[in-house]
């Protein structure tokens, strides 16, 4: 490795990126906008009352009972049986109520938690209206909106993982293939630049470019939403660096053979799609069916988001975080090794 050569290549790669304003937007602007929108959408605000349709041929007592005894946890509308059914299907209401106050009939979608909740709320209102002892009188309800338990606290780690995956796939994978299809790789291959020097300089510059966006997302989460970091900052930064390198390795691997932007796009989708769906970016992947769990666990994205959340939210012990880090490192090293073997200069 000669510093002179590394410097020349690194400088070129950095400038090439910084002169592409749209790339800068997609790496910085996009995740921040996403954090903002999703943070608010699933964050602050009071719980919405359950929406319930009452079939219009039901006795007036049924509607009155719901209206008066639901403590504003339910908003009821009357509609025809057919309208009510339609509204349920479209998700405009969570529950359809008909029948007598003493023997109510509920139409609901058992897969929707909102439906079950609405049923409980309506049942409770009807019990109270019938003079029953308040079934929940002895219970205390404490709403949870503390930092650490909100969606945004969960989301930030996922957004960082998604960003690093994008940096590896596009920043490295796509760019390398473009250099190959422009025959720029061959042009460089006939200079005395050693191949390892080029790859090192390229990865170094892309890593430099990939690190600031996760830090920006993290800072945004902390300052805009008060997202906590309960664990060690050093471990957190170390894990981000490790994630950057692992996804860089995967990016180099998808780019090792492809000759055209079309073919590399296919490979990128093949890697990206499952990670978006199963990698625990937007929602927890713990409860996916057993059948896909081996795949879920093998994914570097799962290791990364688990590790990040373990550190940020303090939900994992150091042993589990170390396991995630090792899993990530193994995938990264295997990718690099395979990419170097397969890499095509021509």
């Amino acid at each position: 490795m000669r510093p002179r050569v590394l410097r020349a290549v690194t400088r070129t790669v950095l400038l090439e990126h910084l002169r592409t304003p749209e790339a800068v937007f997609w790496t910085y602007g996009f995740p921040l906008v996403m954090a903002l929108v999703l943070g608010f959408a699933f964050g602050e605000g009071k719980a919405e009352p359950s929406r319930v349709a009452v079939v219009d041929d039901a006795p007036a007592a049924l509607i009155a009972a719901i209206d008066e005894h639901s403590e504003d946890r339910v908003t009821a509308q009357t509609m025809t049986a057919m309208e009510a059914r339609r509204a349920l299907t479209l998700g405009l209401v969570d529950l359809v109520v008909s029948g007598e106050p003493a023997r109510p009939v509920f139409d609901l979608d058992p897969m929707r938690t909102g439906s079950e909740l609405a049923r409980l709320q309506v049942e409770r209102a009807l019990l109270r209206a019938g003079g029953a002892v308040d079934p929940g009188a002895g219970s205390l309800i404490r709403p949870v909106d503390e930092p650490g338990d909100r969606y945004i606290d969960f989301l930030i780690a996922g957004l960082i993982g998604m960003n690093l995956l994008g940096a590896g796939m596009y920043g490295i994978g796509y760019n390398v293939v473009m250099m190959r299809s422009n025959k720029l790789l061959r042009r460089l291959a006939v200079t005395p630049m050693r191949r390892g020097e080029f790859l090192a300089a390229f990865l170094m510059s892309r890593t430099l470019l990939a690190l600031p966006p996760p830090l920006a997302i993290l800072a945004f989460g902390i300052f805009a939403f008060g997202v906590p970091v309960h664990g060690s900052w050093l471990a957190l930064l170390g894990l981000i660096l490790l994630g950057t390198l692992t996804f860089a390795g995967l990016g180099l691997l998808v780019a090792s053979r492809a000759r055209t932007s079309e073919s590399v796009s296919g490979w990128i989708n093949l890697v990206t799609m499952p990670m978006w769906l199963l990698g625990g970016i937007f929602f927890s992947n713990e409860r996916f069916p057993d059948l896909v769990q081996p795949l879920v666990r093998a994914m570097p994205m799962t290791q990364f988001t688990d590790g990040m959340r373990g550190i940020m939210l303090g939900s994992f012990d150091p042993g589990q975080i170390a396991t995630s880090a090792v899993g990530l490192a193994v995938v990264g090293l295997l990718s690099f090794a395979a990419a170097l073997r397969l890499f095509r200069w021509n």
Binding site: A8, E16, N182, K183, L184
Partner: peptide, 27 residues
């Protein structure tokens, strides 16, 4: 020294910067 057929160099680098890149690869 080599000039290949239909090579495209780095699009966003200037003439001077591209010369500097290649000069940087030789000693």
């Amino acid at each position: 020294g080599v000039s290949l057929q239909d090579t495209r160099l780095f699009e966003k680098q200037t003439v001077a910067e591209l010369c500097a890149l290649f000069a940087g690869l030789y000693e």
